[in-house]
Write a protein that binds this DNA or RNA. Structure first.
Lengths: 156, 156
DNA sequence: ATATAAATGAAAATGATTTTCAATAAGAGT
DNA sequence: ACTCTTATTGAAAATCATTTTCATTTATAT
């Protein structure tokens, strides 16, 4: 099997071992679950999602694991303004899934978009460089979100 | 006094009256306080800030007023990732204060920046147009934040 | 197989924000 | 100015996502 991780250890085992973190059932369950969806999941969504298969993984552990994954850079954490954080796998075997969000201020739905990323990337790189120098900031990340009304909510 | 609103009713009275909202002491206090600062204030910051002069304005009213002001578009609400919302006056007599933020992931400090706004504006306008059409979204706003370590937090 | 420290789950704590509800006050009409 | 109507308010209680505590379990180095 050239490329792909169908058999053998999942690709992220090395990252864990390298950081001295243990590979546990809840962590595998959560990463596996996240890798099977492209939606924006809340901690509770994930808890519910794995509960059928792993009934003894608690919500606390989901929160703790997500915090760890965010800190490791494996997961992105977003705030769409409804008071609960959303999580998404940052990258898979194929690399970083770079995208931004269109958030509906009425129903809270968030749509991923990857359009215009190339021009955007170029501008962002320049902006980051300029800002880093001017404010002596080490920029590691950015967030772009557009807000508005989705097609369903437009008709009032 | 040509231009400026030093005497007479504050500029936002009309907006309130037009919406059928009453002009009350707490609302005046909060708007006045926000117009005197350029910092990013939490609801409690505002509560504390006006408490000396207006000891009988409660925290509940601060939250309620901010919600109203955000809905009216007079105030922007931001999330810098520390669990408490921050508020800023959206515009003054001089117009919209368009800027974005550099957020330090270590100390939580947020720096305003207005650099590169012109190029950015152009790209954003194009992106908004494209996204609006493609996803049938009515975009009304956007958020851009850069995350990293500020000068003070860089030296670990 | 064993030791040891990391990881876990349940319950309790936290803390920002919201809701409830009776009391107050803004503003229209007089 | 006075009255009426209803929006607005403040205090206390409720909510709810997330975090902390702590005794127990488990991954993994030995």
């Amino acid at each position: 099997m050239p490329h792909g991780y169908g058999y053998g250890s999942p690709w992220w085992h090395g990252r864990f071992r390298g950081c001295g973190y243990r590979i546990t059932v809840p962590r595998q369950a959560i990463l596996d679950f996240l890798s099977r969806t492209s939606k924006h999941m809340s901690a509770e969504d994930i808890y519910v999602g794995i509960h059928k298969t792993f009934p003894n993984v608690g919500l606390t552990t989901v929160y703790r694991t997500l915090e760890l994954l965010v800190e490791m850079g494996l997961v992105f954490k977003f705030d769409f303004g409804d008071g609960r954080a959303r999580y998404e796998l940052a990258m898979g075997p194929k690399g970083v899934r770079h995208h931004h969000h269109l958030v509906c201020t009425s129903c809270g739905r968030a749509i991923d978009y990857t359009d215009f990323i190339d021009e955007e990337k170029e501008l962002l790189a320049r902006t980051e460089k300029g800002l880093s120098e001017k404010y002596n900031f080490r920029i590691s990340n950015h967030l772009i979100q557009f807000y508005g009304l989705c097609d369903k909510c437009r008709g009032k």
